[in-house]
Amino acid sequence: MSTQDFIGWSRDQMAARVAKDIPNGAYVNLGIGIPELIVQHVPDGTEVIYHTENGLLGMGPSPTPDELDPELINAGKKPVTAIPGAAYFHHADSFTMIRGGHIDICVLGAMQVAENGDLANWSTGGDKAIPAVGGAMDLVAGAKKIYVITQHCTKHGVPKLMKECTFPLTGRKVVKRIYTELAVIDVAEDGLHLIELAPGISFDYVKDRTDCALIDNTA
């Protein structure tokens, strides 16, 4: 196997691939990091409303220096704008949108995903770490569809898709679809189904980097 600087999809290409699966009119909550890139790839003519759990529906792009208001931020505590047609609300209403099943799609990062859809993305379970969960457990329990966008393996080459998560769970059987730099993978009753490969990537290449059974469903 030859080593390359760059294998499969770039971060932006991964985000663009997720954007293809977001329908017009969807109410969407995006996690911090790679998920934030998705906004730039939603095609013109597709109207998507972004929710940020600190209390805004209709989140817009980063502000210009003139627009900046320290009292208008997103869940990552970064300054944002509100689009025409936006609404503000308090935290219990914001989480009613999430926990009551009113958010159509939530895209999150992952530390580990199990073949049954279990997700671990908030803690490595180390004794010394200060535990912090935020809204992750609410999002995975409440949003209609949970999509994960992540590198296929850790920086050290350890597969993130596995038989059972070893880190503490964020939610049980919650992930519907996984987007990595190598493939798009669905979580089904009978396990993980690979439905699409990044250009130049083979099924066996992905299988070798996945720590559980993987069904080829690209045909």
Binding site: H90, A92, F95, I98, R99, V133, G135, M137, D138
Partner: peptide, 11 residues
């Protein structure tokens, strides 16, 4: 520390 999921905290 009592750690509570954000939505559970609000609710």
């Amino acid at each position: 520390l009592e750690l509570v999921p954000q939505g559970t905290l609000a609710e």
